[in-house]
Design a binder for these strands. Structure first.
Length: 114
DNA sequence: AGAGTGACATATT
DNA sequence: CAATATGCCACTC
């Protein structure tokens, strides 16, 4: 596979009702500073039939990132988040309140098997 | 092999 | 607030 498999592993850990930012995921995945790769990785995900909670990843401004390539799925993302109880305030969520904090201790990383 | 692109982030103007 | 600039790197011609 690709380096993205690990990104997906991290995203899968985000619980319902919480969100994470691209940069945050990148860092947890051992890709600090490479947030763009996270966005690219999620773009590859099959939104309809994937076990990855892709909608819980938003940008550092607390907003849903949109792009012409998404063809309206950005609204779909917001919808899913609201279903989980996340409240948007002026097109933005309060990261201080909803940001996911990963489990403490060691984290699975490619360089750190077991 | 080189250039362009992008679900980003941060800093600056 | 919005527009730029720069760093980042896998992917696609």
């Amino acid at each position: 596979m690709t380096v993205y498999s690990h990104i997906y592993d991290i995203v899968r850990l985000i619980p319902s009702g919480r969100v994470a930012t691209y940069g945050q995921i990148a860092e947890l995945a051992g890709l600090a500073g490479k947030a763009r790769l996270v966005g690219y990785a999620l773009y590859q995900v099959d939104m309809a039939s994937s076990d990855i909670p892709w909608h819980r990843v938003i940008n550092a401004q607390g907003k849903v990132s949109h792009s012409p390539l998404r063809r309206g799925t950005d609204h779909w993302q917001r919808s899913l988040l609201e279903q989980e109880g996340i409240v948007f305030h002026e097109d933005r969520v309060d990261l201080a309140h909803y940001r996911w904090h990963p489990p403490l201790g060691r984290f699975p990383s490619p360089e750190d098997p077991r």
